[in-house]
Design a protein around this nucleic acid. Sequence first.
DNA 1: GGCCAGGACACCA
DNA 2: TGGTGTCATGGC
Length: 223
Amino acid sequence: MDKENLAQNLADIYQRLLKKYGPQHWWPAESRFEIMAGAVLTQSAAWTNVEKAISRLKEANLLSAEAILQAADSALAESIRPSGYFNVKVRKLKALSNWLQTGCGGQAEKLLEIESSVLRDELLSVWGIGEETADSILLYACGKPVFVIDAYTRRIFSRLGLTEKEAGYDRLQRLFTANLAADAALYNEYHALIVRHAKEHCRVKPGCEGCVLKDVCRFDYRE
DNA sequence: GGCCAGGACACCA
DNA sequence: TGGTGTCATGGC
C-alpha cells in the first residue's frame, strides 16, 4: 500500500472510531504523577483493577515520588495489590520514583522541560519501564506527540491487513507517526479509541458483528 | 474453572 | 535475536 493510501486509511479508521465512540478523555487522572504510576500499574492488568490500586494509593497518601520512596515495600504492595504482579510493580514504582526524585526533585512538571527523545531514552533506562510504558508517559503525562503501540494496536492493525503480525515496536510506531500529523491530541485520542474498540470487538475470539471497521478488515470472521 | 487484561524482564539456546 | 517462563489480581 502506498503512503497516500495508508495515510488515508489511518485517517478514515480514526474518524470511524471517533464517530462511534466519541472522545475518550484519556488519561483519567488528577496529576502527572498519577498518570506515570498508572502507566506502570496497567502493565498486563485490567484498568478496573488499576483504578482500585490508584484509589488505595490515594487513601494511603502514596501518590508521589517522595511518599513512594519512603514507604515500606509491604505497605506499597498492599495498596497496589488489586492491580496484580504487586511485588514487581513495587520495584517498578520505586525505580520510577527514584529516577524522578533524583533527576527532577520528584516534580513531574519538570519533565516538560526535557526534549522528547532524550526523555524517552531516560525513561527506558529505568527498570520496569519498557517502550509502551515510556511512550504512555511521554504522550499522556507530558503531552508529547508520541504514538503508543500496545497489544490492541498490534492485533487490530494486523487484522486490518495494515501491518505484519511480527512487526517490531519501532516499525509499527513509525507507521502511525509517518502517516499522521505529529499531534499529541490526535495520538492521545487515537490510541484511546483503539483500546475502546478492542475491548468491544477484537478480543482473541472476536465477536465482530457490528464492528465499525468490519468492511475494511481482512480478518476472517468465519474462523 | 479458564481466560484475559491499556508489559517487562530474566534466562536460555 | 527469538522463544519461553515468571510475576498475580479480579471480572466475566
